[in-house]
């Protein structure tokens, strides 16, 4: 008798523990804070200022999710993760979302048991060379010395590219972006290769950007996106549709300026459903009606975030390119809010 009571209690305890662990949404709400894994520092994407306030393109995703779920964009705990610790931090539950410019690849999605919920930036690996080298295409880099960050996918992409083009190169291994810039400027290598967004930021920070060019070839696909753990589809849906809401808001012309006005009701039913004046989409994923409105209110729609953090008006000066709306010739395409 006593034994069965004990076992029953144990089973009940195990069940509640299992339930509590199963819902990330409940955990986040109970904690009152979203744990968001970010880069330890990447220009434009995630960086703390002198007062320790984080900002950037990836950080905006964290803020939007926190606003949608908790109603307050400041309720985010930023967990800086290094290239080595990022996926374990997510898998072990240390972070709820990983918004850390991580490339969506097959093995990461399957073997590492992550769920990439979408793409917030389409990147690709490029090359930068000095103008006086007289090179105008990556195919002319036969025999060049190339500075490359070790232990990254860029290293493998570089090897693939040169192999498939039947060329030789001499890699100069570097440890960090800062070291790469230093080596490249000191003339230790002819070309510097990393993600094109990183190259643009690096070039913009040089004393003489006009003497360096970024070659037109993009040798890899690097779709960067936020990721969550396998197994909690509700939480995955929330993050996915928060990102989609930001993208859709730009498509429908919902900006931080006209958000209040549009949320009073418009003639466009899609906008009405997005902003919660028609239907109740939020309830389907465990949130309230205004979730998307709050997410957009934080720092505007996708286009506004892009323009404020990495766009052409910032020193980094990235063009929209592939990251434009599908209506503008880009790849951003949010499924309908219905």
């Amino acid at each position: 008798m006593k034994k069965s009571v004990f076992l029953g209690t144990l089973a009940a305890a195990g069940l509640t523990a299992g339930l509590a662990a199963a819902s990330t949404l409940d955990d986040v709400k109970a904690r009152g804070e979203l744990n968001c894994g970010v880069n330890t520092g990447l220009v434009g994407f995630a960086a703390p200022d002198a007062n320790g306030n984080w900002s950037g393109f990836d950080v905006a995703i964290c803020k939007a999710v926190a606003a949608a779920v908790l109603g307050d964009a400041s309720k985010v705990k930023y967990v800086p993760t290094s290239g080595q610790t990022r996926f374990t931090a997510l898998a072990s539950g240390e972070v709820d979302v990983l918004a850390r410019n991580s490339t969506w690849t097959f093995s990461r999605d399957t073997d590492l048991k992550l769920d990439f919920v979408g793409v917030n930036y389409y990147d690709g690996q490029g090359f930068m060379v000095r103008k006086d080298l007289g090179v105008s295409s990556a195919k002319e880099l036969e025999g060049a010395t190339i500075c490359i960050q070790t232990g990254t996918t860029t290293e493998l992409n570089l090897a693939d590219f040169f192999k498939s083009n039947n060329m030789n190169y001499q890699p100069i291994a570097i440890d960090s972006n800062a070291e790469g810039e230093q080596q490249y400027l000191a003339g230790a290598c002819d070309a510097y290769t990393t993600d094109a967004s990183g190259l643009a930021a690096t070039r913009a920070a040089f004393a003489d950007p006009e003497n360096h060019i970024i070659l037109p070839e993009i040798i890899s696909k690097e779709p960067l996106g936020p990721a969550v753990r396998h197994g909690d589809n509700q939480w995955g849906d929330i993050v996915r549709w928060t990102l989609n809401a930001l993208i859709a808001a730009e498509e429908y012309g919902v900006t931080s300026a006209n958000l209040e006005e549009l949320s009073k009701g418009t003639t466009n039913p899609e906008i009405n459903r997005l902003l919660g004046t028609e239907g109740d989409l939020g309830a389907m994923t465990g949130l309230d009606k205004d979730w998307a409105k709050r997410a957009i209110a934080v720092s505007g729609n996708y286009g506004e975030i892009f323009a404020a953090t990495i766009g052409e008006s910032t020193p980094i000066g990235l063009a929209r390119g592939l990251n434009g709306q599908w209506t503008q010739g880009g790849l951003l395409y949010s499924p309908p809010f219905r």
Partner: peptide, 26 residues
């Protein structure tokens, strides 16, 4: 720094350099 803590030699300088104002400081 390798486990994501901000040591004074690499961790802190790396995020300081991530601010565009100080990118290029070595």
């Amino acid at each position: 720094v390798f486990v994501g803590l901000f040591d004074p030699l690499k961790g802190v300088p790396d995020f300081v350099r991530a601010d565009f104002n100080w990118k290029g400081i070595y």
